[in-house]
Design a protein around this nucleic acid. Structure first.
Lengths: 195, 195
DNA sequence: ACCGTATATGAACGGATGTTCAGATAGAAC
DNA sequence: GTTCTATCTGAACATCCGTTCATATACGGT
């Protein structure tokens, strides 16, 4: 697996990020060394610095890529006609998108405290933008009488927290299929925001 | 703040745990050094080893104390007569107990992966015991027709995840009082498990 | 007043850390 | 086939890590 000197490599960058992603998710940012990441790629530690200015930027890049992916993927969806359908779409999208990226998700909110303040601010803004898209659904539904919640902000956070819980226990091939899980959570979410 | 040699100290142990708790919660287990903890207590690093065999045991002790506290405090509550009231009690207890111990809560599920396998197993068992007490409420209520959930296990995890979300944003003195928060979450939980 | 012991110091251990950089190398361009 | 340059190596840097231990100290018991 050892790479040879001088070989061009447009793929070393992605491989470094993939290795870092896996290791950060598995052991935590602080517990993973640059040498570990380099070893996983089959390269010496010094070589990493051709692709990232430092360890911190590597973490930030992973989080930022993930959040951009989340936002742009959601933005591309066709908006349903009713608020109830929009909420249903959000629930399904959220569960599936996140279950497909367990490592990214894990890092995205376990390693927030390891970001510098500026980096943290940027990631936080993206997260809030995503939450806002859910809150907008709840607000719209509330206006037309489809939903009944005491506070749309709290309801937003409650729904997302509930959905995020899925990532902590769901494993493909377990007792329940993804469709079943999605159905059950949709039932609970729907009931929690309707009269 | 520097302690003098030879001085007896039944309070150094607790002070070490308190300092470790705060630092682990703030920066993460892997990112905190024994020397940092010692400095916070006003002692040299070597002195810590009069109170813990190693860093890992310090983490385990913090988590174990917290879970024992959680379980025994909940066990002391008087059980309400109906399932609905029992659930209401659980929601209120969970929110208040955890909001009073933000550092312990943060550690208890951010640092699970830094436990040795045996230690992890023990903490996990305690966590499951707590979850089981909620699932029992849901099962009982389901039997007598007070609740209607597709799967009590999933509903248990969903409810706890939703409640845990409160810890990530609630701050005393904010827009909403603790009573209001509790009321809103109780409304959502109740609706999510009733027809 | 003195002793015994619990408690703390401070130096030391081997090893790991993030990062830098001069030098080596291999593929691309001509 | 030579040159150029992006890429990687390997060693070095200063610093930190968890843990151990001989030594010093001050309090509790007598």
């Amino acid at each position: 697996m050892a790479r040879t000197q001088g070989s061009h490599s447009d793929i070393t960058g992605p491989r470094i990020r993939k290795a870092a992603l896996r290791l950060f998710a598995q052991q935590g940012y602080a517990a993973v060394s640059m040498r570990q990441i380099a070893a996983e790629v089959g390269v010496q530690a010094g070589a990493l610095y051709n692709y990232t200015p430092d360890k911190q930027s590597l973490l930030y890049r992973l989080m930022n890529d993930h959040m951009q992916d989340l936002l742009s993927t959601y933005a591309k969806l066709e908006r349903p006609a009713t608020a109830l359908e929009a909420l249903h779409q959000f629930v399904g999208f959220h569960i599936r998108f996140h279950l497909e990226r367990p490592d990214e998700v894990f890092i995205a909110y376990m390693e927030l405290r390891n970001l510098t303040p500026e980096n943290f601010g940027e990631i936080e803004a993206l997260r809030r933008a995503y939450e806002d898209s859910l809150e907008q659904i709840l607000k719209d539904g509330q206006e037309v009488g489809a939903f009944l919640v005491a506070d749309t902000k709290m309801a937003t956070l409650a729904v997302i927290a509930m959905l995020n819980g899925v990532m902590t226990w769901y494993r493909a091939g377990g007792r329940l299929s993804l469709d079943e899980v999605e159905q059950v959570y949709w039932d609970m979410v729907r009931r929690s925001v309707t009269a």
